[in-house]
Design a protein around this nucleic acid. Structure first.
Lengths: 136, 136
DNA sequence: ATACGTTTTTGAAATCGTTACAAAATTAAT
DNA sequence: ATTAATTTTGTAACGATTTCAAAAACGTAT
């Protein structure tokens, strides 16, 4: 999986440092849409000198190079997704869990004199089955 | 327009205090998707004792009672919309301006064992004509 | 290999939107 | 008019993110 991480970095013109590989690999193997804190807490054991600033820097770099996606579905904290193929997301309003959804087709080619669209995101919110079972 | 503001409050079971009426009226007459700061700066002239905390409290209250909509299209700051009829939004990545869009139909009745959807939002991003003219 | 310049990482401090809290002011009820 | 409940206010706290400059790691040319 390390190879895939390096490939993803290199193919997006990002130099593969040890920290960048770790973070990229983390996102490729964890499909949980983690936050900066989650990534930091999970990686710092194996990489004791890791800094949270490096996580911020790296995620921003990866996102700017379209190697990952930044999700803004959660008002409080950014979440990150290593799966860049188009898809949508659902967030549970009770527990905060984010679940992948099949792509809802969105017409991005709307013509207008007022603007040009180059991104469209669909965010769903509701309650996941676990939270519903607990009647939250 | 003050009457419309009071009506909107009362019909959503919110007591119409002077501050709440002002804020509600502001959102009904300004279709600019303002932030807390914008609302505060525009209203404090007429209401010198107004507190920014009151704006925060009131907007949260209005949103919880579905009298207004909170937009999370802007990662940095919440924007608010007094138009509650279903529609989508476009944000210019250069100047931050938010523009109303016709509703893109989104299927909220997707059946799943994993969750129940009760909200869906579509956010578009790109560049507005003004910023494109300035080749930003 | 070594020295030099560039890139990357790091940790501390600053920033900024938002929330918590408790006191003051206003409004409603008896 | 008193008392209780609600609303507003200002200050302080909070937490995610950014800034910044120094330290470390890396790449390259000699």
């Amino acid at each position: 999986m390390t190879k895939e991480a390096i490939d993803r970095l290199v193919s997006h013109n990002i130099r593969p440092s040890a920290q960048r590989i770790s973070i990229m690999e983390y996102l490729l193997t964890h499909r949980t849409h983690p936050t900066v804190d989650t990534i930091y807490n999970d990686l710092v054991c194996k990489m004791p000198t890791l800094s949270k600033t490096t996580i911020y820097n790296t995620l921003k770099l990866l996102e700017e190079h379209d190697a990952i996606i930044e999700l803004t579905i959660d008002k409080k904290t950014a979440h990150y997704d290593g799966m860049t193929a188009p898809h949508s997301h659902f967030m549970c309003k009770s527990c905060g869990k984010i679940i992948d959804m099949p792509l809802q087709k969105v017409d991005q080619n709307q013509t207008s004199h007022d603007f040009t669209i180059d991104e469209a995101e669909v965010y769903y919110k509701g309650y996941c089955c676990d939270c519903m079972a607990k009647r939250c």
